[in-house]
Computed example of a mutant assay.
Amino acid sequence: MTEEQEIKSTLEDYAKAYCAKDIDSLMEVFDDSNNISVIGTGADELCTGRDSVRELFIRNFAEATANEFEWLWSNIIISNNYAVVAIALVIHLEYQGNNLEIPIRWSVALRKTERWVWLHRHASSPASNQDEGQAYPQEK
């Protein structure tokens, strides 16, 4: 398996654990040190350290059930024992009885140990008030 395939495998591991609401398996994709961070799409989703990251995912699991991660565009840059993944995806989930498709953009920073582990994950949503081909939102 190439390094790129190994890194893509960690994305699949994350998605499977997230959809299964398996917090232990989800946390296994991250570095086992306390030097990890996650930025989510919510205003208060700024997490540093394993406990904070774990609590964020448990809260997410309580609010909705993800069924599928649909991978779209991606770019993987590998340099020595570090990698950065830029990826666009759609998360298919059930929230308050409704089936939703949430477009997400991720940046994931990884480090190679005996395997590739996540150091940081940043999520954002495309601006809904910004037209394609425009650099800035059209409304306040």
Rank of each mutant, 00 (worst) to 15 (best):
4 E>N: 07
7 I>M: 13
8 K>Q: 14
8 K>L: 15
11 L>H: 06
11 L>V: 13
13 D>A: 12
13 D>W: 08
15 A>L: 09
17 A>N: 05
18 Y>W: 06
22 D>A: 12
27 M>C: 10
28 E>V: 05
30 F>I: 02
32 D>N: 09
33 S>L: 04
34 N>T: 06
34 N>M: 14
34 N>D: 15
37 S>G: 08
38 V>P: 07
40 G>D: 13
47 C>G: 09
47 C>D: 14
47 C>P: 08
49 G>I: 13
50 R>L: 13
50 R>P: 05
53 V>W: 11
53 V>R: 03
57 F>Q: 06
57 F>N: 03
57 F>T: 01
57 F>P: 03
58 I>T: 06
59 R>T: 04
59 R>Y: 12
62 A>S: 10
63 E>Y: 04
63 E>F: 11
64 A>V: 05
68 E>Y: 10
71 W>I: 12
72 L>P: 00
73 W>G: 00
74 S>L: 14
74 S>G: 04
75 N>M: 13
76 I>Q: 06
76 I>M: 10
80 N>W: 04
81 N>A: 10
81 N>M: 12
81 N>L: 13
82 Y>L: 11
83 A>R: 02
83 A>L: 04
84 V>E: 11
86 A>I: 10
89 L>N: 00
90 V>D: 11
93 L>Q: 01
93 L>S: 00
95 Y>D: 03
96 Q>T: 00
98 N>V: 07
98 N>E: 13
99 N>D: 11
101 E>V: 11
101 E>R: 10
102 I>L: 15
102 I>N: 10
102 I>C: 14
102 I>W: 15
103 P>I: 11
104 I>E: 14
108 V>E: 14
108 V>W: 12
111 R>D: 03
112 K>T: 01
116 W>V: 01
123 A>N: 05
126 P>T: 02
126 P>V: 07
128 S>P: 01
129 N>M: 08
129 N>Y: 07
129 N>S: 05
130 Q>Y: 08
131 D>V: 10
134 Q>P: 01
134 Q>L: 15
134 Q>E: 13
135 A>Q: 07
136 Y>L: 15
138 Q>K: 06
139 E>W: 14
